[in-house]
Design a protein around this nucleic acid. Structure first.
Length: 280
DNA sequence: CTAGGATCCTGTCAGC
DNA sequence: TGCTGACAGGATCCTA
């Protein structure tokens, strides 16, 4: 799913391609669009920020476009700042196509498309000074690669008996970790995802904290995981899905070579992958 | 506080 | 071949 590494890859791409462009007009066919798109028109794009899995495109007129792509949202740029555009097969229906819900017409013949075939994502226009007041962002916990410390992490774990995997995916506890990286981090730390969080030892807590940071860094290195619909603003796929440690590997041998086989269960309603043999 | 279910939506896949 | 139904899943909301 689009998580911290995917959204950060999108942020970098958008920053590279969009800064300097002016939004000329916005065409919307989408119910998950809030606010007045007219406030974007004439604004010049200054920077692109990320808060957990949410993006904020900030304009020089005091307004921002805030976007959560959820599972299947895609932000694809076409224009003079992109020399080698890609068109991944995951861009179902193409651009523009039947899943294109919002089109941002930019100056200098640039275009930004918002595609989302499951329509879970949302976009909203707010004043830049109010971006951090948006509910999701206001509740967001610190990020593992920026702000979250081992001490805070240990406090979060000890505060609850909830299953550790559910906890690390809770955006109000820490921002950016979703299903793929939660599964892989727990695998790397050799911890059973079902363990009550407050029962982890100090050593296990440290190991898990380091593992979360490690898998997120790997995700960033491969520019994200394209297992569902994730593509970069250039229209290309990420590579992490070919390097996942346990995610999606049910029935296959454990990559720790412990002799175990990866098992898939449901935990908190989410597909959960782990090796019952070496994840204790 | 916590667990569990429903909700949003549609491509994919299993079963008949 | 073609239809039907189950399923997945981030975040939120609701109930128990």
């Amino acid at each position: 799913m689009p998580e911290l590494p995917e959204v950060e890859t999108i942020r970098k791409g958008l920053e590279k391609y969009l800064v300097g462009h002016t939004i000329k007009s916005v065409k919307i066919h989408y119910k998950n669009f809030e606010g007045n798109e007219k406030n974007l028109e004439g604004g010049k794009i200054k920077k692109v920020r990320r808060f957990g899995k949410v993006l904020s495109i900030d304009l020089d007129n005091g307004y921002s476009l805030v976007i959560h792509i959820k599972l299947t949202g895609q932000l694809i740029y076409r224009g003079p700042n992109l020399k080698h555009p890609g068109l991944s097969k995951k861009i179902f229906g193409g651009i523009p196509g039947k899943h294109t819900h919002v089109v941002f017409i930019l100056n200098k013949n640039g275009t930004l498309y918002y595609n989302d075939y499951r329509k879970f994502g949302w976009l909203k226009v707010v004043k830049t000074k109010d971006v951090e007041e948006i509910g999701f962002i206001k509740k967001l916990g610190p990020e593992p690669l920026d702000g979250l410390t081992l001490n805070i992490f240990k406090e979060i774990l000890s505060s609850t008996k909830r299953a550790v995997k559910i906890l690390i995916m809770d955006q109000s506890k820490m921002g950016g970790v979703g299903n793929i990286y939660a599964n892989d981090a727990l695998f790397l730390a050799k911890i059973d995802p079902r363990r009550p969080a407050n029962e982890l030892s100090v050593v296990e807590a440290k190991k898990l904290f380091e593992s979360i940071k490690e898998v997120l860094k790997r995700g960033l290195k491969y520019e994200g995981a394209s297992e569902l619909a994730y593509v970069t603003p250039a229209g290309k796929e990420g590579g992490y899905q070919d390097h996942a440690l346990v995610y999606g590997r049910q029935g296959k041998p454990c990559l720790n070579k412990c002799g175990g086989k990866v098992k898939k269960i449901k935990l908190g309603g989410r597909g959960t992958y782990f090796c019952p043999n070496c994840q204790k």
